[in-house]
């Protein structure tokens, strides 16, 4: 049974298109890894599914319901939760208050006690201000905050960013417990090996397009790495060695950068904000 379906999704920022006809689906309890270099559109895809960005074209369905036109807070109530890139906790709230913020009205296994059981280090620091916690503690709070909404779909954006490998290992050891609760996970991870090990299936994004997809166990690693870098032909052997995450080259095309010949930034089009969004 498919929980989340994304079909033919175009999205971006103002006049910069970041996603081109992206399609994917997530089955009940499944974990899918999203692989790609910086700027490939992984975070954009997650933010578009969560509702922070409104898609230009395409469908997003959750349990058969088209949610592409719904505002972000509504999607949260329907069961989409995100662990945003860079954690983005509410710094002036305590760790516990951060976890109590989600107001989705959804019941489920992830009570405060269950979350403290999952992350004992958060329980110990529950009354500390989130802004004063260590990076690992903050990441734990961010995951707990997302789970506290008892979501159907959990979007995890680079939980390993800026953390020591041992700390990241700790999070990935907890992943099976989270998966057992029935939530399906869309996981963005720079470290290809980690991503493949933790997921059932994997997708590779390159410059906003899905260039490769398959079962994590059966994917050809060399082909995946050349897809990751957008290399035209043979894989580079130096990049295939196992170990820490390969450092991707900085090759995306951010807005404002000269556009290579043959590729043009689309004309300015008014992109309606996803919903009244109040800047600060």
């Amino acid at each position: 049974m498919t929980t989340l379906t994304v079909a033919g999704l175009d999205a971006g920022y103002r006049d910069f298109q970041a996603l081109f006809g992206v399609s994917l689906d997530l089955a009940e309890g499944e974990t899918v890894a999203l692989i790609g270099a910086n700027g490939a559109g992984k975070s954009t895809l997650l933010m578009t599914i969560a509702g922070a960005l409104r898609p230009w074209r395409g469908r997003i369905t959750l349990d058969g319901l088209d949610i592409a036109g719904l505002p972000d807070h509504h999607r949260a109530r329907l069961g989409i939760a995100i662990v945003p890139e860079g954690r983005r906790l509410f710094p002036s709230l305590t760790a516990e208050e951060n976890i109590l913020v989600p107001t989705t009205g959804r019941g489920g296994p992830w009570s405060l006690d269950a979350l403290y059981d999952l992350f004992p280090m958060v329980a110990a620091r529950r009354s500390h201000r989130a802004g004063l916690l260590s990076g690992g503690e903050q990441q734990a709070v961010a995951i707990a905050r997302a789970l506290a909404a008892n979501p159907r779909v959990l979007l995890m954006d680079e939980v390993s960013l800026g953390l020591a490998p041992a700390v990241v290992d700790g999070f990935y050891r907890l992943l099976p417990r989270i998966q057992q609760s029935g939530v399906c996970i869309l996981l963005v991870e720079q470290d290809i090996d980690r991503a493949l090990a933790a997921s059932d299936r994997a997708l590779c994004l390159l410059e906003g397009r899905v260039v490769m997809a398959g079962d994590s166990a059966g994917l050809d690693r060399d082909r995946l790495i050349s897809a990751y870098f957008g290399a035209p032909s043979a894989p580079r052997s130096s990049a295939t060695k196992t170990g820490p995450a390969p450092v991707p080259p900085d090759k995306p095309v951010p807005p404002g950068k000269p556009v290579p010949p043959g590729k043009r930034v689309p004309p300015a089009r008014p992109v309606p904000p996803a919903d009244p969004e109040v800047p600060r």
Binding site: G51, A52, R77, P279
Partner: peptide
């Protein structure tokens, strides 16, 4: 604000 909205 943006993250608060994503929390419902």
């Amino acid at each position: 604000v943006a993250i608060a909205r994503l929390q419902g």
